[in-house]
Design a protein around this nucleic acid. Structure first.
Lengths: 197, 197
DNA sequence: AAAGTCATTGACTTTAAGTCAATAAAGAGC
DNA sequence: GCTCTTTATTGACTTAAAGTCAATGACTTT
């Protein structure tokens, strides 16, 4: 990586980090592009070198923490199905807490519409959750042959994002991690029971 | 109701109905306030007599179908707990299908933030779901005394909105009602099992 | 019928997203 | 080392649309 690319990377990272701080503090709608660029020490136009739309930065902000999880789970290759899923839920809600309510709200507002994917992102939106989960379920030797993989994947996604959404709706009134623990004990078992060998 | 009030009501209803059609067809971000008012045959300013912000009309659009459910369930006073909840999920997802993906997306985008409630709305946002559900659970004679009502209410909300969200994320790829049926059979039982008398 | 109320209007203000031609600094070729 | 090209950066500018408001006149009240 040469000097130019390094400096570009630095600028982009600075913008993402600054935006994260500002959104955490004030919320996405309460700040404008110039607030971000000023705080990052660059001009407004620079923002648009790295992001096509104002919203696109939210996906980049959240991609890092949520993308990490996907990698972590993918690395647990030989673990049992429930171990993977429990870990997944736990890490997901950890990131929800870390990102804070404003960022989570914007994350949901964006992923809710598949047409919002910026082409600059190598992975396609929520589908990196979807695809990873689907492949975990597909390759699991614990599930029966006729298990409805697609439906089960949708259910898991729905549970994850449902918790996140409910947490946002309630303005952060409960502990995400307590909920996750309870969920993994009770509901996860119920969901998979009919399809375990 | 006198002539003036009648005509005002008519204008407001016309705006809501027109907005529903336009949003269903094109999505909320793709239309502007003038598109709505022109299609409704009034001037732009009139919109702001009835709604403080552009977004506020989404809550009014969705309040009708989703508010109706709350009334319906409230009317089932003597029914069993599971009967009420099953009905609730079923009707909710029916409305999700009726409203269409664009309206559902905006509904989520709005209810996700409790600070968005327009004061003009008599009921407070998602809490008319929340409060009704909580009172159903509280007054049920089928649940143990020590059942964690608040947590259970959050779980139900999370399940409902999780399905809706997942449906939006997947761009309407599955049948909401099939999912609901399955959910009520399997998961609902698991969630409540530890707390049934 | 005079006075008051209030829905309606559309031109106007305001805000902020997004553009773009000019600049300067880095890299490539000789 | 010198020239030419590439590309990150800049901020003044354009554009789009949300939201305001004083004027109007139809309806209501007394």
């Amino acid at each position: 990586m040469n000097k130019r690319q390094l400096s570009a990377q630095k600028t982009k990272r600075k913008l993402i980090a600054t935006a994260l701080d500002l959104i955490k503090e004030k919320g996405f709608d309460a700040i404008n592009v110039e607030d971000i660029t000023k705080a990052a020490g660059v001009a407004k136009g620079t923002f648009y070198t790295y992001f096509k739309k104002k919203e696109d930065i939210v996906l980049e902000i959240s991609r890092t923490p949520f993308g990490e999880i996907v990698d972590e789970i993918a690395a647990m290759e030989n673990a049992a199905l429930f171990e993977k899923l429990t870990k997944y839920f736990h890490r997901f809600m950890e990131q929800v807490e870390y990102c804070g309510i404003h960022v989570c709200r914007e994350w949901i507002r964006n992923v809710i519409d598949p047409n919002n994917v910026p082409e600059t992102m190598d992975s396609q939106k929520w589908f990196y959750d979807y695809e990873m989960l689907e492949s975990i379920l597909k390759n699991s030797k614990e599930l029966k042959e006729d298990a409805p993989i697609e439906l089960l994947t949708h259910i898991i996604i729905s549970e994850l994002y449902g918790m996140m959404l409910c947490w946002c709706m309630s303005d952060g009134k409960f502990e995400p991690l307590d909920w996750t623990d309870r969920f993994c004990d009770v509901q996860l078992t119920a969901i998979f029971k009919p399809y375990l060998k």
